[in-house]
Design a protein around this nucleic acid. Structure first.
Lengths: 204, 204
DNA sequence: GAGAATGTGAGGCGATTGCTCACATTCTTG
DNA sequence: CAAGAATGTGAGCAATCGCCTCACATTCTC
């Protein structure tokens, strides 16, 4: 950040910019994300934007930082020790949907499209590490043991599967569909319930 | 298309253009997709491109058409009547991974980023309909009955979950990881095996 | 009231890019 | 072998676009 906001007014401005940026990035994708549009959507002049963000990428970094913090926070609320698998799945799915509801398309754009400034490349993978280990913890807890490499693999697949379902639902505007949610819970719950027995995979 | 290619030479040119376009769209996303780059990658002059495609969007339409045809074709090869769920899952997963291997990022970009020209808006949803009903057929066959609405919902979730796992694996460059494939098969197989009993979903 | 903090927005300016056009080369056909 | 059709070329136009600056206005703090 070029300059730290000192008064309440300027802090509100910065917040509005990050919020508007998140919305535009999520709705219009990286190619639709322009600083002028963000400033306009935030109800702020373009000059104010560049008073706090030295360039476009640093704004993206702020958006990313805030979003990842939100995700981690949502993740932390999941307390599922000792619950039956289906219930763990229900809690997890509800938390993930809640985390994606504010800005449905944002997560995908941040991961897939938006470039990262040279300095802030680590925090993102840091995020993925913490994210996945949290997931692995849930899997392991549901299997009543300490996390193993197998649990990590399972956590990765689970996380990506949930991601995919939520993302596609968001694209179709059906994030609230209860039928979808129920099926997703069944998918994850069944997966958690099944122990780690091997599956048949032949070479192609 | 502005002009139909008559000789073999020009048909090869058009093919090269579509192929190069698919690669660039998949690798660099919509914002990295420029007609000049496509022509260069195809080893063809930009003039030749505009000899057969009236504008940029019509080229995207051709790419999309070809990709969707490939997907449907891959889908049709899945014959899983009477197999146990885990085997159906293995066949299905292998087919989907194969379908995405040629252009790992293309599917997502076509669905999420690339705009559609005004005329060709139907074929895409047509595609999704055929795609999903095929999926529903597999689910129903695995449950040894004719497709029901519940099977359609299950098919949608399954398709999106597989999509998500494959997409994220592609992003990380680990599409070939056998551990991931095995876990994905377990996820899908378990889901197919479980009958349609309800899952607990409370209101938020 | 002085100086700091904040806000404004027209526009510079470099970069980008979709697309054309005048011309060269290769193929088919009678 | 013409002769015309089909195909291929690529420099560059015209226009857009979007990041970012700067000189100035307004509001706040002390």
């Amino acid at each position: 950040m070029r300059k730290a906001p000192r008064q309440a007014r300027s802090r509100a401005t910065v917040d509005a910019l990050v919020e508007a940026g998140a919305r535009i990035l999520g709705d219009d994708g990286w190619s639709g994300f322009t600083t002028n549009k963000v400033a306009e959507r935030a109800g702020v002049s373009i000059g104010s934007l560049y008073q706090y963000f030295p360039d476009k990428l640093s704004l993206v970094d702020s958006i990313r930082r805030r979003h990842l913090d939100d995700c981690i926070a949502a993740m932390r609320t999941v307390r599922a020790d000792g619950c039956p698998p289906m219930e763990v799945a229900a809690i997890l799915v509800r938390a993930m949907i809640a985390a994606h509801s504010a800005h449905p398309g944002l997560h995908r754009v941040l991961l897939d499209e938006a470039p990262t400034s040279a300095e802030h490349r680590d925090p993102c993978s840091d995020f993925e590490v913490e994210y996945l280990s949290h997931y692995a913890g849930i899997v392991a807890a549901s299997r009543k043991r300490r996390p193993t490499p197998a649990d990590h693999a399972a956590a990765g697949v689970m996380s990506d599967a949930i991601d995919g379902v939520i993302h596609n639902a968001a694209r179709r505007g059906s994030l609230g569909d209860p039928m979808m949610q129920a099926e997703l819970v069944r998918l994850i719950g069944g997966y958690l319930a099944g122990a780690g027995e091997a599956a048949p995979v032949e070479e192609s």
